[in-house]
Computed example of a mutant assay.
Amino acid sequence: MVIHRIRRRIVERFMTFEPIGLLLFASLAGGLFLFASLTGLVLDGGMHSFDEMILLSLRKAGDLAVPIGPNWLTHAVGDITALGGVTVLSLMTVLATIYLLLARQRAIAVFMLFSIIGGWLVSSLLKLGVARPRPDIVPHLVEVHDLSFPSGHAMLSAVTYMTLGALLSRAEQYRSTRIFLIAAGILLTLMIGMSRIYLGVHYPTDVLGGWCAGATWAVACWIVARRFISSRPDPVEAPAAH
């Protein structure tokens, strides 16, 4: 009887979606389709010429070890790509979790932490499943060792920053701050992904795949949070009577 009531409640929640909920579901389905299609093309080798053209266009024709643009741009891109590293992402996740706990948003904090950890595990499994080697078309400007598709920096930054933006925004009172947090997460994700192409350590399709997979994961977490995670702060416990 209890299981029946729980099942009915879940069905009722999904049957009462507002337009934004339907848009999120459409984004989720579209993201899954795009990632599956892109993975198929990568496995068949159908995108190699596209990848090669983009990587070569970002290097000087006479010396493929030298990227286009001024010297400061290479240093700036190196700093940007570090924002998608495990160290920085872990630090951001821990700080955001502590912030939500201090703001008495325990449910959102716990859900956000496990959502990000789950996304990282999915990224590792996808890399092992596709097992695409790193590009050797141009020299790498930073040291890398693992597999290539999907880009870990692109996917993990999407999982982390977009999930942080979406879930942190639920604790904000004003719409402007909610929009800013989500937009900041998207901007960081795009910049980090593009930096991996510029540095020559990922094919463009690696980054596209990472963006699709990471954004799809973030949207799925956002859908679950909107339906089942309360955005109200935890009640303050009254002091014990003496």
Rank of each mutant, 00 (worst) to 15 (best):
M47Y: 09
H48I: 09
H48S: 13
F50W: 13
D51I: 04
D51L: 02
E52T: 14
E52I: 01
L56F: 12
L56N: 12
K60R: 15
A61M: 10
D63S: 11
L64R: 14
A65M: 07
N71C: 00
W72M: 11
T74W: 04
A76V: 08
D79Q: 13
G85E: 11
G85S: 13
L89E: 00
L89W: 00
L89K: 02
L91M: 09
M92N: 06
T93I: 04
V94T: 11
V94R: 05
V94M: 13
T97W: 15
Y99K: 08
L100P: 10
L101M: 13
L101G: 03
L101D: 03
L102Y: 05
Q105M: 00
Q105W: 01
R106W: 08
A107P: 07
V110D: 03
F111N: 11
I117V: 14
G118V: 01
L126R: 07
L126E: 09
K127A: 06
L128A: 14
G129V: 00
P133K: 08
P133V: 00
R134A: 10
P139W: 11
H140P: 11
L141R: 12
L141Y: 11
L141V: 08
G152W: 01
G152K: 00
G152H: 00
H153W: 01
A158D: 03
T160G: 05
L164N: 04
G165N: 05
L167R: 06
S169P: 02
E172D: 02
E172Y: 06
E172F: 07
Y174N: 12
T177V: 07
R178V: 04
F180A: 13
L181D: 05
A184F: 12
